[in-house]
């Protein structure tokens, strides 16, 4: 039996087998002192390749994190709307970059903040706010309505539908108030069957 080294790995060659004389290549011979454990060449190669692997993984990971955008600032992200004092009760403010209306309802309507996605729940047109028109829902009259120009769906200030083909109230977006600053997560849109005062964020 003889041990030769192929690509740094010890290979046992049975010398008794006829026609299979061990091939001795001078550069494959390892000095006897190193035959006991891992050869120096193999050790260096393993260390080198693994280092390169770790480095490459790090570089790829860093690239993915770099490529992941942090500052998005458009529809789908969280938008800072402003200070609470800018939106007194009874106002409807159009926030175009977030495609929603920030509504602050009167105390008798719930007295809280609502972010209403401006897309009509019927077929998706942008619904404008009409200050001068009134709407009636469950016996009460509300000043100002959302009226869709496409098919005439109508909603009161809380987003509740009261006329036209709309099957449900306007969708809401998540509103957060922190330190008097309002931010709206336009990526978090909630459908609802009925507008309730509990949809509103109290301040």
């Amino acid at each position: 039996m003889a041990i030769i080294y192929k690509d740094g790995k010890p290979v046992v060659v049975p010398s008794s087998e006829p026609g299979h004389a061990p091939v001795h290549e001078p550069h494959d011979e390892i000095p006897p002192a190193e035959q006991a454990g891992v050869s120096r060449r193999r050790f260096m190669r393993v260390v080198f390749l693994n280092s390169m692997g770790v480095f490459t993984l790090g570089a790829v990971g860093t690239f993915v994190v770099m490529f992941w955008p942090k500052k998005v600032g458009s529809f789908g992200s969280t938008i800072k709307v402003g200070d609470v004092s800018q939106f007194p009760p009874g106002t409807v403010t159009r926030i175009p970059e977030g495609r929603f209306y920030l509504v602050h309802t009167l105390p008798e309507q719930g007295g809280g903040l609502l972010a209403l996605y401006w897309k009509c729940v019927h077929l998706g047109c942008t619904v404008p706010w009409r200050d001068a028109e009134d709407g009636t829902y469950s016996g009460k009259t509300y000043k100002g309505i959302f009226r869709c120009p496409c098919h005439g769906s109508q909603y009161i200030i809380t987003g509740q539908n009261f006329a036209g083909p709309a099957p449900r109230p306007l969708d809401t977006m998540q509103v957060t108030v922190s330190g008097g600053q309002i931010s709206v997560n336009t990526g978090k849109i909630t459908k609802r069957e009925e507008a309730k005062p509990s949809d509103q964020v109290k301040i």
């Binding site: 490529f67 992941w68 998005v72 458009s74 529809f75 789908g76 992200s77």
Partner: peptide, 13 residues
């Protein structure tokens, strides 16, 4: 999609 367009909708990114 977020990585491709660098946001939630087509824009400068």
């Amino acid at each position: 999609q977020f990585l491709l367009i660098g946001g939630y909708e087509i824009g400068q990114n």
